[in-house]
Design a protein around this nucleic acid. Sequence first.
DNA 1: AGTTGTCAAGCTAGT
DNA 2: ACTAGCTTGACAACT
Length: 291
Amino acid sequence: MKIGYVGDSKIQSFHSARRFRLASYSSEKFFEYSKLNIEGISDNITYSVESNLLFYRIRSEIIPFASHEICNDNWRDKFKTSFEKIGTFIQDKCMRISTHPDQFIVINSPNPDTVKTSIRELQYHADMFGLLNLNSSHKIQIHVGGAYDNKNESIKRFIKTCKGLSKEILAHLAIENDDRLFSVNDCYIIYQETGIPIIFDTLHYAIKNDGETLLEAAHKSFSTWDKEDGIPMIDYSSQQEGLRIGRHSDEIDVNQFQQFIQLTRPLNFDIMLEIKDKDISALRALPFVVY
DNA sequence: AGTTGTCAAGCTAGT
DNA sequence: ACTAGCTTGACAACT
């Protein structure tokens, strides 16, 4: 069981998501920022290992505009060695890595242009895993997408698009239950047709479920992970008291976390914390994580 | 130097 | 018809 955080440590001052405006794009800037961001990932990963946080999510902005058509700069060759080095370190230390393309990546959209740009972004993530030389236990995590007033058709479109994805993308792809449209059960339909495993999101489950218990939902999600996918991943976060439903909490509620770990005691999984203060909460949760 | 506005991209739900 | 929010930061433009 591993635990980790997203992006940049809140304790250390590392930066892996320096960005610039599309309007000011230049090859020089592109390579400069990419290099700094890759160094930022390296810093975060080294620090994470030292802190016993062995799960880490790389932000999508590492290579700025990597999947945008403006980018004709060959970052893959340029940073091959840097990625190899980081990838070797990750494997030596038995770390687990995920990425999470953001809300613009919608592969079940009825708009073919949206699907096309989404696939480009997925390929960028897959290429990064390729350069890191990481196997299919390291995941690219996405949502199912929109419902477009017809969930069944939207699920079918997702499945259809999946069948056309590259094997590099499919090796790493995972779907997450969301908080408004697609529950664990909905994701399971996609799993049955595609074999894509489900990342169980605890907060989303609490907001959107089909009446099953947390343990039932967790079991169902975990059953979709086969040997190549590795130990199931979950996203853990809790509701910020008094704010809009779905709002992630600023810091972890350690008692609640401990209860969750006890409740799920027979199960094994890796935990990605989606909590605003990142490694601060991860380090507070770490003593309760079972090895 | 510090503060505020804006950023490649989509979608839903609420006004 | 329009927009806040998703999650969130960090750059760019302003005071």
